[in-house]
Design a protein around this nucleic acid. Structure first.
Length: 378
DNA sequence: TCGAGATGTCATGAT
DNA sequence: TAATCATGACATCTC
C-alpha cells in the first residue's frame, strides 16, 4: 500500500483543459475586473490555501511535495472562484451549495448521512466565507470535508487525466460548464428573471449529470473516494485483506468521514460481488431445475410407454390364459362323460404342483387357507 | 410510455 | 464481536 503512488496516479493536477478553458472565460476584462473587486485577496489565497491544507490531517496521507503540487496547480482555488462567481452572479449560498451538492449527493455516505450532510453545508459555507475574505480554517479539516465539496465543483469544470475510469468524463465534456451564463448577449438583459432561468438551467444540467453519473456506481464511489482525497481505488479498498484494511485505517490519520466512506465503499463492493454471485447461483439453479424438469418429462414419457407396453402384455397374457382355460374345460368330462360346466368348477393349482378340477365354493375356502399359510410364513 | 431485464444497494439473518 | 456472506426487496437505469 503506497499512498504516494496512488496519489500520483489518481490525483493528477488539472491538465491543459483547465488552463485553456478557464482563462478564456475569465479573460473578458469587465468580469475579471469585477472579480478582482470581489476577491481582493485572490493573489494570496494560494499560499493561504496551502497552509490550510498543510494544517489539516492531509499531511498524514500525502507527502508535502504532492500537497504543493495540488496547491500550485491552483485547482482548489479555481473551484472556490467558480463557486464565488456563482454567488456573484446572484445565486444564493444555499442555491450554490445545492448546485454543487448534486453530482455525488445521492446515497453518498449512506451510513453516515447525517454527518456528511452537516459537514457538507459547513464546507460550502467555508468556501463562501473564504471568498469573502474570512479565512479561518475549518475545525473539521479541509482535507476531508472541504475536499468533498471541492470535488463536486471539479466535476463541473475541471478534467483530470487520471479520471478515465470515472464515467463522468464523458458527461463532463458534454457539460457546457465554465459559467456559460456569463456569456449572455448583454449585461442589460441579465435580469433577476435571467438569474432564475439560468439557475434552473444549471440545476437541470447538473441534475442530468448526476443521473448520468449513477450509471456505474463503482465510479460514483471512485468519485467519492477522490472527493475525500482517499488515495486508494475502489478495487483496492474492496479486495485488500481485513488486516490490510484495518492497518490502513489505523496508520493513516483519517477523519471519521474518510473512515466511514472507506467502510461504505468496502461494504458496498463486497456486497456487489456477493449479489453478482448470488444472482449467478440463482440463474444456475433455475437452469439446473429447468434441465431437471426436462429430464423428468423425458423419463415420464418413457415410463408411460413402458407402462403401456406392460398393459398390452398383461392383456395378451390374460387373453391367452382365458382361451387356455376354456380350451381345458372344453376337453374335460365328468364321470358320465358329460362336459364340465366352467361356471360351477375351477382349475385349482395346489402348492405341491398338483392340478385339480374342484367346485368353485371349495376353491374359495381353499384359497383362504392358502392365504393364511402365506401370511404365517411371512 | 410501458414492461422486462440488469445492476447496485440496503436490511437482515447466518456463518 | 466484527467481518463476511447470502439473499430478498427495492430503486434505478437501459433497451
Amino acid at each position: 500500500l503506497n499512498p504516494h503512488q496512488f496519489h500520483t496516479n489518481n490525483f493528477s493536477p488539472p491538465d491543459a483543459i483547465l488552463r485553456t478553458d478557464y482563462p478564456t472565460q475569465l479573460n473578458s476584462k469587465p468580469r475579471h475586473l469585477q472579480r478582482q473587486e470581489v476577491f481582493p485577496q485572490s493573489s494570496s489565497d494560494i499560499t493561504n490555501l496551502e497552509s490550510l491544507i498543510h494544517g489539516s490531517n492531509l499531511t498524514g496521507l500525502f507527502p508535502a511535495a504532492d500537497l504543493r503540487n495540488l496547491t500550485a496547480h491552483n485547482d482548489n482555488f479555481d473551484e472556490i472562484k467558480l463557486m464565488s462567481l456563482a454567488l456573484e452572479e446572484g445565486f444564493g449560498p444555499i442555491e450554490v451549495s445545492q448546485i454543487f451538492e448534486e453530482p455525488c449527493s445521492d446515497s453518498g455516505l449512506s451510513l453516515n448521512s447525517n454527518h456528511s450532510t452537516t459537514s457538507y453545508s459547513v464546507c460550502c459555507e467555508d468556501s463562501v466565507g473564504y471568498s469573502s475574505g474570512v479565512k479561518s480554517a475549518p475545525s473539521h479539516g479541509l482535507g476531508a470535508v472541504a475536499g468533498h465539496c471541492q470535488e463536486n465543483i471539479k466535476h463541473n469544470h475541471v478534467e483530470y487525466p487520471g479520471d478515465a475510469e470515472c464515467p463522468t468524463e464523458a458527461t463532463l465534456q458534454q457539460f457546457p460548464h465554465h459559467h456559460t451564463y456569463s456569456q449572455l448577449p448583454s449585461q442589460a438583459a441579465f435580469t433577476p428573471e435571467h438569474h432564475q432561468q439560468m439557475w434552473m438551467k444549471k440545476s437541470n444540467e447538473v441534475k442530468g449529470w448526476c443521473r448520468n453519473s449513477t450509471a456505474t456506481n463503482q465510479s460514483r464511489d471512485e468519485c467519492r473516494a477522490k472527493a475525500l482525497r482517499i488515495p486508494f481505488s475502489v478495487d483496492e479498498i474492496v479486495s485488500m485483506s481485513v488486516d490490510s484494511f484495518n492497518t490502513m485505517l489505523a496508520k493513516n490519520q483519517l477523519t471519521e468521514t474518510q473512515v466511514s466512506l472507506l467502510r461504505d465503499i468496502r461494504r458496498r463492493g463486497k456486497n456487489k460481488v456477493a449479489a453478482q454471485k448470488c444472482r449467478k447461483r440463482k440463474l444456475n439453479a433455475i437452469l439446473n431445475l429447468e434441465e431437471d424438469v426436462c429430464n423428468l418429462q423425458t423419463q415420464k414419457e418413457s415410463l408411460k410407454k413402458e407402462h403401456s407396453q406392460c398393459s398390452k402384455s398383461i392383456n395378451q397374457i390374460k387373453q391367452k390364459l382365458n382361451s387356455l382355460y376354456h380350451d381345458i374345460f372344453s376337453r374335460l368330462r365328468d364321470d358320465q362323460g358329460r362336459p364340465v360346466n366352467p361356471c360351477q368348477y375351477v382349475i385349482h393349482c395346489s402348492s405341491n404342483g398338483s392340478v385339480f378340477i374342484i367346485p368353485k365354493h371349495l376353491a374359495k375356502s381353499e384359497q383362504k387357507q392358502d392365504n393364511r399359510k402365506e401370511q404365517k410364513q411371512m
